[in-house]
Design a protein around this nucleic acid. Structure first.
Lengths: 332, 332
DNA sequence: CTGTTAGCGCCTTCAC
DNA sequence: GTGAAGGCGCTAACAG
């Protein structure tokens, strides 16, 4: 391994001078700078981050913790985050928490151990507060994306959930639906609570039949929704809901599968809409009607915020609320 | 920041003893071990990787370099890789090369600088050889996934491209197609060369009309294929190709878009098949007929190989060839 | 503008 | 079983 000492020897300078060169110090004469740079090039010298980090320097390393990179929503967040990070010279550690606090907790510890400068996280839920406090204890800045956590103040990049629900509900109502069911995510995730609140408000405001517009709860994962769908269909036809609003793409897809399994036609027998695209290419084969959140921007802007924080430029907490776009498919 | 010195003081032992505890040395009495462990717990001590790394220890950090995490093929590779890495206590650095050698080169340097123990990479192409040699120079083990590189020997996790092409061609031929066009990836990527070779062999073997079965080349990216499609359609109908084999999902999707743009019906006017799912959920809304590669396994097995290499368990190079599965959609 | 000294947190080596 | 000394590669603080 080539070190600054090797460079120094060859260049007839002290290691400190080499250090100054690789850190772009301007307390150096142009001639020695050039000489040293040439030798660095020749010897393929690559600085050792561990050593740098040990003396208290920034590590230029950030951590991204999502629930599941396979969800296109988070895939795009990851890409946005990585693009911005790379642009600013940072590297990205990736973890999948699967919405499990314990896994998340392990990742947080590993992440601290690795000496990251900051963390961008879509927290598992409100119980993530302990993990986030751990970060605070180590003075590691973080931003929350997609979800906030009760009792935590930080920079936030969130979807405008009320606006998204309005978009989907308005669309369904325009198509004549009056009996709409919400299949929501878990109530320990902030965006599920917000989506539910918006849903209820609209049901009241629009005087929809809210006795037949109950709210079901599942998880934001690839899980069967057969039971919930069966329960919805157990209501006899004149009173049965005619449309389902799924709180995210995984739920939306599961609902479609459950409906198809028992021969229901979509949208004739049941309309389905959801948050977030289940597919990564927007305009290719749209089946589901969705409120598409600008996931890439979540990641890109979030990383910008995070690195500003790392550099100590920003003190007060910021909250960015990003709107969804309605993409009408065949499912409604 | 809590260090082994803090723990040592509180436990009335030397820092060395603490070090032994956190490294599960067995040269320690049960009683002191327990005492130290208790204090570690109390003080929320987290080891500093930078320090560990500096004294030459494993960093428990690996790097994954893909061309684009947004491609579901690589998304699933990433998930498989991260799962295996986490299982074995490793963390994952993620980078997107966009199939550009210079970007890749920067990531490789950053990755070395970060002190990774190993690298899993889908190389940009044959020119990646310099980047891989850089890794060798630093004695960092690596495995190649999805693509091999001429002149590089290493562990390999590859798709069985011949088998995949056979699958798709057999399917098309069974449906009566005799004039098939290949829209391939760039020839500096090994799998493109293999797919082309298999395609040609089958065209000859099956005595397909190979004067009208030319091969076009584009990139494995989300780029327009309008020009290529127009060229294909410029042939008059009795002689025009009736099916297109796209070498990956991005190309497949682009081709569909190009065809739709000019009002061609799929599959009536033109059948389309490709490698890899363009969607992350297999059984939801299948439009394209695809040869689906087991991407998750690429990542999972690849990471297993890599970490075995890191631990010095394996010496000879291994090559894992994974078969595709045919998923028939509406596009053919 | 350049060099010297000391130390970051941990582990290897060698004592005891 | 436990501890002391030294050093990994780098940079902050000081000196010249």
């Amino acid at each position: 391994m080539v070190t600054i000492y090797d460079i120094a020897k060859r260049a007839n300078v002290s290691p400190m001078t080499v250090s100054r060169v690789i850190n772009n110090s301007n307390l150096i004469s142009e001639s020695t700078r050039r000489r040293v740079e040439k030798i660095i090039e020749e010897m393929d010298y690559i600085p050792n981050k561990a050593a740098r980090n040990l003396v208290g320097k920034r590590n230029k390393l950030v951590s991204l913790i999502v629930t599941d990179i396979v969800n296109p929503f988070f895939t795009n967040i990851a890409r946005g985050a990585e693009d911005k990070a790379a642009e600013l010279g940072y590297q990205l550690l990736l973890s999948n928490s699967d919405e499990e606090v314990d896994k998340e907790s392990n990742y947080i510890r590993a992440t601290i151990s690795a000496g990251v400068d900051g963390v961008m996280i879509a927290p598992s839920g409100d119980i993530s507060i302990h993990n986030l406090n751990m970060l605070s204890k180590y003075k590691i800045p973080f931003v929350l994306v997609d979800r906030e956590v009760e009792g935590i103040t930080s920079d936030l990049i969130l979807g405008d959930n009320r606006q998204g629900v309005e978009l989907l509900m308005k669309h369904l109502i325009e198509r004549g639906h009056r009996r709409i069911v919400l299949i929501n995510g878990p109530d320990y995730v902030s965006n599920a609570r917000e989506r539910e609140k918006a849903f209820k408000d609209i049901v009241n405001r629009e005087k929809l039949e809210n006795n037949i517009s109950p709210i079901f709860q599942t998880r934001y994962k690839q899980e069967s929704t057969d039971d919930i769908v069966n329960e919805i269909l157990s209501v006899n036809v004149p009173h049965r809901a005619t449309a389902i609003l799924a709180a995210n793409n995984f739920i939306g897809v599961s609902v479609i599968k459950s409906l198809r399994k028992i021969g229901m036609r979509i949208p004739e027998d049941m309309a389905v809409v959801c948050f977030d695209n289940p597919e990564f290419i927007q305009d290719f084969n749209p089946f589901l009607t969705v409120a598409a959140q600008p996931a890439y921007d979540f990641g890109y802007i979030g990383m910008q915020y995070l690195i500003e924080r790392i550099n100590g430029k920003i003190i007060k907490n910021r909250k960015m609320l990003l709107p969804s776009k309605l993409l009408v498919g065949k499912s409604s």
